[in-house]
Each structure stands twice: as C-alpha cells, then as structure tokens.
C-alpha cells in the first residue's frame, strides 16, 4: 500500500479532510420571497442581496471548520474571507444548480430562469454562472470534490494582506493534498482529474469578480436595501 501521508495538522489521514468538510457543509437557506409584493427588478435584487447576506453568515461559520483555517491568525482569516467570499457564494449556487438545466438555484425556494434573470437585470451575470454549472456538470463533479475545491478557493483567494504566508501555504497544501488523495483513490481512471478541477478556479475567480462588480453598481444606485455584512464585504473588495 502507498505510504499513508500525514499532514502538519497532527496526522489527519488524507480522506479525513474530505469527511470533515462534508460534515461542515452548511444546509441550503431559503429566500422566503413575499408573495404579496409584485415581481420587479428591485424585489428580485432585494431577495438576492438578503440571501447573500444570510449565506455569508453561514459561510463564515463553515470556514471555521476547514481543517487548518482556525490555526491561522484572525487577521489572516479575515483577509482570506474578505478576498474569497464571493467565490464561495458563487460555488454554492453552482453546486445547487447542477441538477437543473439553464436555471440557477439561488435558494431551494428561489430558482432563476432566463426570464427572471432578464427582469432582475442579472442576465449576463447568471449566464456567466451558468458557464461554471456547465463546466462542473461536464466533469460530473462530486460533492466530496465540491467541498474541497470550495475550501481551496478560499485558501487560494490571493489576498494582498496575508501576514503569515507560510501558514496559508500549509493550509493550501493540506487541501490540495486531500483533493489529490481523494482523486487517486476514487478516480484512478483519470490521473489528471485533480488538475482539471483546480483549473476551474480561474473561471470561478472571473465570475465572482463580475458578481462583485454588478452588486457594487447596484449599491451605488442605492435603490436596493443591503445588509451590513454584505455591504462591508462589497466595500472590502
């Protein structure tokens, strides 16, 4: 048997990281749109911003369960979240949408099709997110791979303000190693699968940047109410 590798996290067995991340994966949240309010772009954007804010709270709680993340300094935890938060939001929408065709599951009770995207003025953004859905659908990404690549996206979010670069590098190595070991155990038929999954990150980064830009312009217009955490992270970008 290949020599079991241990990690600097006290000898966590490689598949242990995947199972910890599966357990840490938060449940979906609900939009609970008000049926008495007539549909409009403002209503749709208000729902999306409210969902984003609540999902951000969930994602911050999730990040604290990534093996190795709590070992980082608080300042570095904040830096990674300030730079990677939109990628995490987008990835969760993408994963929820894998089972559908040309629709985005922003929440179990808030699924956007092309018409609704046009009405909300987010057609371009949603089409960009749908590109990611198509990419992951084509490679039949599994939940185990999804939870690891989401943690990698956060650890690899290229913040300009990291204080302990070596500690962040160790976190990236742990997560990268977990993905590689998962693939070598589960997908012997495709020795390049781990690389293929990591090669989706540039498109994720680009799509998240488009989302940030779009919501920053909405924020500038001042017509859509946004909660403090979402506003604060938009400004951090």
């Amino acid at each position: 048997l290949p020599q079991k590798r241990t990690f600097p996290l006290g000898g966590l067995v490689e598949n242990k990281v995947v199972s910890l991340l599966l357990v840490a994966e938060p449940e979906s949240i609900f939009a609970m749109p008000d049926p008495t309010v007539p549909d409009s772009d403002i209503k749709a954007l208000t729902i999306l911003c409210d969902l984003a804010d609540r999902e951000l709270v969930v994602n911050i709680g999730w990040a604290k369960h990534i093996p190795g993340f709590p070992s980082l300094s608080l300042a570095d935890q904040m830096s990674l979240l300030q730079s990677g938060w939109m990628e995490i939001l987008v990835l969760r929408v993408v994963f929820r949408s894998l089972a559908l065709e040309d629709k985005l599951v922003y929440a179990e009770d808030y699924i956007m099709d092309e018409e609704q995207s046009k009405l909300a003025g987010v057609l371009d953004l949603n089409n960009a997110i749908l590109q990611l859905v198509k990419k992951y659908k084509a490679m039949r990404i599994e939940k185990e791979e999804f939870v690891v690549v989401k943690a990698i996206a956060l650890a690899n979010s290229d913040s300009m303000q990291i204080e302990d670069v070596e500690a962040v590098q160790r976190l990236q190595d742990v997560l990268h190693g977990a993905l590689q070991d998962y693939e070598s155990a589960q997908h012997t038929e495709d020795p390049r699968r781990a690389g293929k999954i990591i090669m989706t990150l540039p498109l994720l980064r680009q799509t998240a940047a488009r989302a940030v830009q779009h919501f920053c312009s909405i924020k500038q217009e001042g017509r859509v109410p946004m909660h403090k955490l979402f506003l604060e992270l938009l400004e951090a970008k």
């Binding site: 709270v57 911050i60 709680g61 935890q77 992270l233 951090a236």
Partner: peptide
C-alpha cells in the same frame, strides 16, 4: 513614507469580525 505606511491599509470589517469570533450556536 516609512515602511509601515507602504503596507496595505486593512479595511475595517466589524461585521466580519463579529461573525468570525462568534461561537457556532450564535451563528446558527
């Protein structure tokens, strides 16, 4: 300017810090 001025100024993120330091049951 002195070296620390050349460091990127970290943006205040009180909300992020609040949730990052909250215990899980508060988050949930």
């Amino acid at each position: 300017g002195c070296p620390q001025q050349s460091r990127l100024v970290r943006r205040p993120c009180t909300e992020l810090l609040k949730y990052l330091t909250a215990t899980d049951d508060i988050l949930l």
